[in-house]
């Protein structure tokens, strides 16, 4: 309510791979309960940005603050504590292949948070129930559909009690008919007040959910604003062009 400190604040992140500047100084803020969506062409640095925010790739420059406190990523304990607070959903799910759905969700609370097994189990079951997979708890990743895998991965992240969720194209590896079930779960999270940063190509979904959309290209945030403005009335030519293209695609497919 009166809480003015952004949950997550990213300041001037830069990242290069050799001569290839992938991120050229990206800054953004996420307020509690806020949902921001990043769109933009492939290779524009969206995915790298999310990986950088979780320190899954090292930053060349830039600062990251959680609840106003800067994260010093080479202090290991601070880093692992931070990552527990920042849930990450990957494009290709990255479920632990050797564990069934229940244990995928359970292992974080047990091994990282050191919760007693019974408590962690209860929590894991509840999270799986929340994503509608209670009946699939004993299945291994190879036995689940893509949509189910992504829902397990969401449950796995939720079981750590994150304050922010980073979602990296959560539905782009899915068959079209499976996208809906994942969107439903994300929508459910949104209505529960989860703070989220979502990278997606699903502009229709994005516009119904986001309070702000960032258009990112060539390692920079080119334009940002409310969904209606970015998608239908962008100031920058490139944004308009991209949104027109992707919008056409979206209309054709649905």
């Amino acid at each position: 309510m009166a809480d003015q400190t952004p949950v997550l604040r990213i300041q001037n992140i830069k990242k290069s791979y050799g001569d290839n500047k992938v991120l050229k100084g990206v800054s953004l803020e996420l307020n509690r309960g806020g949902i921001k969506v990043v769109i933009g062409p492939s290779g524009g640095g969206k995915s790298t940005l999310l990986h950088c925010i979780n320190f899954l790739v090292g930053l060349d420059e830039g600062r990251i603050y959680l609840n106003g406190k800067e994260i010093i990523h080479n202090r290991k304990r601070e880093l692992t504590a931070y990552r527990q607070k920042v849930g990450m959903i990957f494009q290709d799910f990255n479920l632990f292949d050797h564990l069934n759905a229940l244990h995928n969700v359970l292992i974080g609370p047990v091994r990282v948070k050191k919760l007693p097994k019974s408590e962690a189990r209860e929590r894991a079951v509840a999270e799986l129930e929340r994503v509608g997979l209670r009946d699939h708890m004993t299945k291994y990743p190879a036995e689940l559909s893509g949509g189910q895998k992504q829902r397990v991965s969401i449950a796995r992240a939720l079981a750590m009690d994150p304050e922010v969720m980073l979602l990296d194209e959560p539905t782009s590896a899915l068959d079209p008919e499976l996208i809906g079930e994942v969107h439903e779960v994300i929508r459910d999270l949104a209505s529960g007040g989860m703070t989220m940063l979502l990278v997606t190509h699903e502009v229709g979904f994005a516009s119904s959910l986001a309070d702000e959309i960032f258009f990112m290209e060539d390692g920079k945030i080119v334009e940002q604003g409310p969904p209606q403005k970015i998608l239908f009335n962008a100031e920058c030519d490139r944004t308009r062009e991209f949104c027109a293209k992707i919008g056409r695609l979206h209309n054709n497919s649905s």
Partner: peptide, 23 residues
């Protein structure tokens, strides 16, 4: 083992040693 397995473990707050031994 796919790289994503380690990334997923890190993103849950696993340390490297714990990720290696548990995942």
């Amino acid at each position: 083992v796919k790289k994503g397995q380690l990334l997923a473990a890190y993103s849950l707050g696993f340390s490297k040693i714990r990720a290696v031994f548990s995942i």
